[in-house]
């Protein structure tokens, strides 16, 4: 099977997954008490009951749940994600406006994680059971254990408020300008820390395991310098299991973005999602969960492609 065919197959296989995501989200939204109309009238207790009923009818909220779902999915299949009730804006335009912010933040966090985790893991594996390994284990365990909202607040308090090295709150510059980096660093580090810690441990374990294999002794017996043995022979084999975890961590980065964007006031999908949940903006919530689901599926697909690039045995299976 060719790689294209494989990719196509995986994309098709993601359709039922996304369908499931939408059903679960839809159901959860209906289980939670209150809807958009309750939220809208809460601010004004003088709204009469018949007015609320009219709004529900207008939004289609008076229909049975399954009818509401069918209406929604029908729209989605034609590319219409519905509208934001409170502002009458198109959901897709809101999502598309916020999406780049979240992608940039997530990518930054992810790249930060990889840049820390791969060298850190290699170092720990090569110095297994020595001081460097212990230090890396301590750092990794701290990274995994510290909650990201706390880490974000601390970074802000120290580096932005006390030392005034970095700006915070809404980035005041265009997304792709180089100065954007200053706004990105604190939230990016916050979002990437746990992922870096996880990945570093996997990298260390995986490489330590590979180092015991006979092909390593064979490579050394060829007289290759230790650097070549590690960075050429062992690294590529160890990266295979790191790839799995890296894809898996995309989900945690996406989840983390909700908290981190709230802490840093980062105008991305995560912040939008929190606001949407508060207001019971069901269309917006569904669209955002669907998008994040799609990105996680995409990350796993990328991981599968990376496997194939790293390991010829997997390539042959496609």
């Amino acid at each position: 099977m060719s790689l294209q065919k494989f990719i196509l197959k995986r994309i098709l296989a993601s359709v039922p997954v996304l369908f499931g995501v939408s059903v679960v989200t839809f159901a959860l939204m209906h289980i939670t008490p209150g809807d958009i109309v309750d939220q809208l009238v809460a601010a004004n207790p003088n709204v009469p009951a018949h007015e609320s009923a009219r709004l529900r009818r207008e939004f289609g909220l008076d229909q049975p749940v399954w009818v509401q779902y069918l209406n929604w999915i029908q729209g989605v299949l034609t590319g219409d994600f519905g509208e934001v009730y409170s502002s009458s804006r198109d959901v897709s335009s809101v999502v598309l406006a916020r999406l780049p912010e979240t992608i940039i933040l997530g990518l930054f966090g992810w790249v930060f994680a990889v840049l820390i985790a791969i060298p850190g893991g290699i170092y720990a594996a090569v110095n297994k059971d020595q001081l460097g390994d212990d230090v890396s284990r301590f750092v990794a365990l701290s990274g995994i254990s510290i909650p990201n909202f706390w880490l974000g607040l601390m970074l802000m308090a120290i580096f932005a408020v006390r030392l005034d090295w970095f700006p915070t709150l809404d980035p005041q510059t265009s997304l792709l300008s180089p100065s954007m980096l200053w706004w990105l660093i604190l939230p990016g580090v916050t979002i990437g820390t746990a992922a870096a810690a996880n990945m570093m441990r996997i990298m260390r374990t995986s490489m330590a395991e590979e180092l015991n294999k006979e092909y390593v002794t064979a490579a050394r017996a060829k007289g290759l310098p230790e650097r070549t043995v590690i960075l050429k022979h062992v690294l590529r084999n160890s990266l295979i299991s790191v790839t799995t975890v890296a894809a898996f961590l995309t989900a945690s980065i996406v989840a983390g973005s909700v908290v981190v964007e709230t802490v840093f006031g980062w105008p991305g999908l995560g912040l939008e999602l929190i606001q949407a949940v508060h207001l019971r903006e069901i269309n917006l919530i569904l669209a955002i969960t669907l998008f994040t689901g799609f990105f996680i599926v995409l990350a796993n697909l990328l991981a599968d492609i990376v496997y194939a690039l790293l390991d010829p045995r997997i390539r042959d299976e496609y």
Binding site: T217, A218, A221, G223, R236, D311
Partner: peptide
């Protein structure tokens, strides 16, 4: 160490017991 590396594979070479594990699967 670097002098020994000049010997390994060059003046003294080794054939391992199990070729399958002695070869790196990804190259």
């Amino acid at each position: 160490d670097s002098e020994v590396r000049q010997i390994r594979g060059n003046r003294i070479a080794m054939i391992f017991q199990d070729a399958q594990t002695a070869l790196n699967p990804v190259y």
